[in-house]
């Protein structure tokens, strides 16, 4: 029962969604299934959030290495949670109640987002600019034909997407305008890059279709393994 029922649930749910593509009256059932999907995914996130909280609280109470940072995480979590759940300072609360827009300008939740989450998120990702520069300097070498093609392609794109390309090949006469970097980079993106991306896309699609078939036919059961029998 512990594995058979979920196995049946997988098969039935999968079949409903596939058949709904061919039988329009089943469209309503498909939509219901997908609404369930939306609701369950929220609980899955709560599970993850709960786990994060559990690990950090354990770290704080057992005073393990770097417990101070875990405490900062927990405090940050609860402050943001309280501001959001109770919609503190939200100007729409008076009219819309708890249905008010979370991101209404002036709400403390939005203010904390602007002052803390937004800059931290943007700065974290912007660090990659530095690491890309350093890694390119250290590792980007034309060691063989494959690496050379990659290097040339990257250079054409880097030049073509900025004004450098226009300056570098602006002197070329019109009859060879195809070789102007800005045109070459567009061609590279729209043709050669397209071909490679398409091959990857088709490959992935075929892989997903076969994997989905295995799941729907009940052959693939790894998601039912693990934990208590």
């Amino acid at each position: 029962m512990k594995r058979t029922i979920p196995w049946i649930i997988t098969i039935v749910t999968g079949f409903v969604l596939v058949i709904a593509e061919f039988v329009p009256p089943w469209g309503k059932m498909r939509e219901d299934v997908l609404i369930y999907f939306q609701i369950i995914s929220v609980f899955a996130f709560f599970l993850g959030g709960g786990s994060l909280l559990k690990i950090n609280l354990q770290k704080v109470f057992s005073k393990r290495t770097d417990w101070e940072y875990a405490l900062v995480t927990v405090v940050g979590f609860f402050v943001m949670l309280a501001l959001g759940l109770f919609k503190l300072g939200n100007p729409e609360m008076a009219t819309a109640g708890y249905a008010a827009d979370l991101n209404a300008n002036g709400s403390w939740f939005k203010n904390l987002f602007d002052a803390v989450k937004a800059p931290l998120s943007a700065s974290m990702y912007s660090l990659l600019a530095f690491f890309i520069a350093s890694a390119s300097y250290r590792a980007f070498r034309a060691k063989n034909s494959d690496a050379t093609v990659l290097l040339v392609s990257a250079f054409i794109i880097l030049m073509g997407q900025t004004f450098v390309g226009v300056v570098a090949t602006g002197w070329m006469p019109d009859w060879v305008s195809f070789f102007k970097v800005e045109n070459l980079s567009l061609w590279l993106l729209a043709k050669a890059n397209l071909a490679g991306q398409r091959a990857i896309l088709i490959g992935i699609a075929l892989g997903i279709v076969s994997m989905s078939l295995r799941v729907i036919l009940g052959i693939e059961r790894t998601h039912l393994s693990g934990g208590d029998e």
Binding site: S136, Y137, R138, M159
Partner: peptide, 11 residues
């Protein structure tokens, strides 16, 4: 971009 390309060329 110019700076990055120069780094790659030098390397």
């Amino acid at each position: 971009h110019v700076f990055l390309m120069l780094l790659i060329i030098f390397a």
